[in-house]
Design a protein around this nucleic acid. Structure first.
Lengths: 258, 258
DNA sequence: CCCATCGGTTCATTATTTGACACGACGGTG
DNA sequence: CACCGTCGTGTCAAATAATGAACCGATGGG
């Protein structure tokens, strides 16, 4: 692994729940040497990717990221492009909908539409990465990405999130295969308790799956009728989102269904 | 210069006017070896910081940046905090106002308020870095940052933007000193033709200057009355913005004025 | 058909990174 | 006070990764 990757990886430890991280904590998180991490942190800081609190000495994400995000959004308005589609699906279903894109062996949220109704709703954090093996989005991604992605996930240690998290490689292979046949995936509380989620892949202009469109709802609300509605919305929405990215569904995508 | 800095530096070449960059172009821009750049680009891409168009092979900023920007804004809502203040100043003055933060030897825009009136207005790009020696913001920054920043700027080659750009180190020193005395800086067409700009520093909770509040307007509109109004707005606004960041003005800041 | 340009790849050399250890400073705690 | 953990530095030999020149295949002109 190159030096650049190691340094950039440090940035991935920041999340909404952990916006500030100290040197010792990084050592625990990464297992790397203190001096190494420190040098990386300094270099990231001097480039504006990190900032440091003078009192607590804790590090946090820096302003350089905002500038880059600005350029990215102005020139590749992906979020703007998907937002109306995701919002619309969320409105009709009355559930949380999100679009995430593959980043290494995780999915990174790109946009999500919250719902504003009374009662329970799923909490979703756009700053948190989604694991491939435990989420509906992940299954949908694995099912339509090149096969070596699945192998990569299986070869790594598989983290357990709930009682329903798939831990066995073979079970995972079967779930992925089933997802490929159905064109959408289902996750019943495999990532978070009480949360049911369904997802479908989205494709770029080369017909490569690069992310997912997903719906997440409290398990108690996931009746058969609701599920059917979600599937319909996903199948239509998946195509819409792909188009919004300038992409299109693979030719055999519709026929693959069993 | 470390490997990490070199790689991150590649990201800085992206801007709204140049959202896609190819390998050869990077070679021209950086002067580095092609293979080196290529490896850096690959590593940045595999971490989601860059994406590549399969047809044109050009690189663009990746989605990982969006996620990090999201975390940053959710946890350190700097833009949200500053926005109302900047908007308000812009409204009362009827001119473009922006807040930028120091990043290395440049200023990186954090937020700006456009004006929506007929006639001329200054174009401002939040994705573009501002040089320290040629802008009002830069002078204000230099005047209140540690002295070695000025030395660093002077020791580097000084780029000429217009006929009025300060190129001579001593002239720059004098301008900085004057700015320190006045508490605000003026730039008459030293960065862009026909643009007059004025700025004041903003301070964090350690009373360290970390950025600037600035107003930019067409030179023709910069009458004496207008300038007086801008100075008043900057002096009040500088304190407001500093407070919004949880900071405050240095104790001797008001007394320094001559 | 030749030449230039571009993205991508290879490989031996070189320079950098790495991690272990050590030291000083700081802040909190018993 | 002594003790503890943490951050920030240094040093240094060994390991590793970065480097740049050369090379390849594809593409597009003239």
């Amino acid at each position: 692994m190159g030096t650049i990757t190691k340094a950039l990886n440090l940035l991935n430890y920041f999340s909404v729940t952990q916006p500030e991280i100290g040197l010792s904590e990084f050592r625990k998180l990464t297992g790397q040497d203190k001096a190494t991490i420190y040098r990386h942190l300094c270099e990231l800081e001097s480039n504006g990717f990190l900032g440091q609190d003078r009192q607590t000495r804790l590090y946090h994400l820096g302003p350089a990221i905002l500038r880059l995000a600005n350029v990215r959004e102005k020139t590749f308005p992906a979020r703007d492009a998907v937002a109306p589609i995701v919002d619309s699906i969320s409105d009709t279903l009355g559930e949380l909908v999100h679009v995430s894109v593959l980043q290494g062996t995780c999915l990174s949220p790109l946009y999500h539409a919250d719902i504003h109704i009374r009662g329970t709703r799923v909490y979703f954090d756009e700053g948190e990465m989604l694991p491939l093996h435990a989420t509906a989005s992940g299954l949908a991604m694995l099912a339509f990405a090149p096969a070596d992605l699945l192998e990569e996930v299986i070869s790594a240690p598989i983290q357990k999130f709930t009682e329903s998290t798939i831990l066995d490689p073979n079970t995972l292979r079967i779930a992925v295969k089933k997802t490929r046949q159905r064109r959408f995936s289902i996750s019943d509380e495999s990532f978070e308790r009480e949360v049911c989620s369904m997802a479908t892949p989205i494709f770029d202009k080369d017909q490569c799956a690069f992310g997912t469109l997903a719906v997440a709802l409290p398990a108690g609300r996931a009746t058969d009728e609701k599920r059917a509605a979600i599937v319909a919305a996903l199948i239509k929405g998946g195509e819409d989102v792909s188009k919004a990215f300038g992409g299109s569904l693979p030719a055999n995508f519709n026929e693959e269904r069993v």
